[in-house]
Design a protein around this nucleic acid. Structure first.
Length: 415
RNA sequence: GUGGGCGUAGCUCAACUGGUUAGAGCACUGGACUGUGGCUCCAGUGGUUGGGGGUUCAAGUCCCCUCGCUCACCCCA
């Protein structure tokens, strides 16, 4: 029979790795909560149009990477390629701006993009993201970066560099774009093929081209920070002051531009030196115009998202404790199995972690399994025990064992 | 979408220029130890060599096709 395999670019997170995921997500939730964020659970499917309007119709994500299908009522549905658009949609749809003066929200879940898989890139990938609505002040930018910094620290992840930049606002970005165009117009032939295309579509992206020649060339190009309007410059400087005050190390990367259309002002990335080509672990920025563009009230906002798989691959999971059962019930013979079964039911009702070997194998083989599962204690129920109305309780670590009356077992561990 | 690398047991890998029945370690199961785990020793289970076709007396090995994995480009978390 033909084997059915998982879909390309989609992977199973097996129990060992899932424990690391749980650990990371728990840490993230705790830190988000201390910063006053609440979880929002958003759907995996959305009207496709939401992403056309937020991410931008000409971005690769929308043009060729989005999973879309037509529903039975002929509406175009998309599997979400990112989380921000959904959170913004929800924020508007439920008038969260009315319910609360500001909102701090986070989400954890899978995203979908039909790209060619490679290291750190999957077709179904998980993001941990957060958004803040209703604050324009640069201190919230810094606070958010500080939160991420703390999260990475608490996970003992080192070697990350925080890069920041300001990509301006609708007032000043057009001038910068023009200046870039002017600069590259005379050197079009020197640019790589891709950048010649970028020149037309989005000249900002020439700045982060990996080709060494384009890279060198754009070193001479106009700098985004030189073209910021007064407001943008003040904002950017204040973000830096606040980062210093919070003790968050950073570098300015004037080549940092974001791929999604909706960003304004602050843009940032946490970059790792040890991840391969896809080295951005977390990225985000401010998007002060998006809420309004999607039909909501004019609301400043900022957000980020973390690539879960990339974060996991930097995470050393060896200190994470494996889950092992407290009790392992070994039953020898059918009668003992029945006793054991009723015992384990009582234990479970008391919330005591216990597993039972239903194999009816030899004591030796059941003991081996108890060891394999790393159980703290083993309860042995055999003929001798049955006759005496006791169970043998063995401490696996100390290799000591005592007989305990059957009726006292639950009480012994129950408290 | 484009390009490179790689597919042998559950995992990591062997198999000289094509040459007997494709091996080893780990893991798994059992035994030595008839009711006591880890260590040791012994034995056993496990393979359509990713799949299909071709060349040859003979293919894991050579050729073609195909599928899958992987890395990179594009793009992005």
């Amino acid at each position: 029979m033909k084997q059915i395999q998982g879909v390309k670019g989609v992977k199973d997170i097996l129990p060992d790795e899932a424990m690391a995921w749980q650990h990371i997500q728990q840490k993230a939730r705790n830190i988000f909560h201390t910063f006053g964020y609440s979880e929002i659970i958003i759907p995996v499917i959305e009207a496709a149009e939401l992403f056309l309007r937020s991410i931008g119709e000409t971005t690769d994500i929308v043009e060729k990477e989005m999973y879309t299908f037509e529903d039975r009522d002929r509406k175009k549905i998309a599997l979400r390629p990112e989380g921000t658009a959904s959170v913004v949609r929800s924020y508007i749809e439920h008038s969260l701006n009315q319910a609360s003066p500001f909102s701090k929200l986070y989400y954890i879940g899978p995203m979908f993009r039909r790209e060619r898989p490679q290291a750190g890139r999957y077709r179904q990938f998980y993001q941990i993201g957060a958004e803040v609505f209703g604050f324009e002040h640069p201190m919230i930018d810094a606070e958010m970066l500080s939160m991420l910094n703390l999260l990475f620290q608490s996970l003992d992840i080192s070697g990350l560099e925080l890069q920041i930049n300001s990509i301006g606002c609708p007032n000043c970005r057009p001038q910068f774009r023009e200046a870039l165009r002017d600069f590259f117009a005379g050197r079009l032939s020197e640019l790589c093929e891709n950048c010649q295309r970028r020149f037309e579509l989005n000249p900002l992206r020439i700045l982060d081209c990996k080709s060494s020649h384009c890279h060198a060339l754009s070193g001479e190009a106009p700098k985004t920070l030189d073209y910021l309007c007064a407001d943008c410059l003040t904002h950017f400087n204040k973000v830096q002051d606040s980062l210093k005050s919070a003790g968050v190390p950073y570098v300015i990367n004037q080549r940092l531009v974001r791929g999604l259309d909706y960003y304004t002002h602050t843009a940032f990335e946490f970059v790792s030196g040890s991840l391969g080509a896809q080295n951005t672990v977390a990225a985000g920025g401010r998007y002060n115009t998006l809420v309004e563009e999607l039909g909501g009230p004019s609301t400043p906002a900022i957000g980020f998202s973390i690539g879960m798989e990339r974060l996991v691959s930097l995470f050393d999971s060896s200190p994470v404790e494996k889950q092992s059962p407290f009790l392992f019930i070994v039953a020898l013979g059918e009668k003992a199995q029945e006793q054991g079964f009723s015992l384990i039911n009582k234990l479970h009702k008391e919330g005591i972690s216990a597993i039972m070997d239903y194999s009816n194998g030899s004591l030796k083989s059941q003991m081996r399994k108890a060891d394999k599962f790393n159980a703290a204690h083993v309860l042995i129920l055999g003929e001798d025990e049955l006759a005496k109305g006791v169970v043998t309780l063995r401490d696996m670590k100390n290799k000591t064992q005592v007989e305990v009356p059957l009726l006292e077992i639950v009480g012994k561990f129950g408290s």
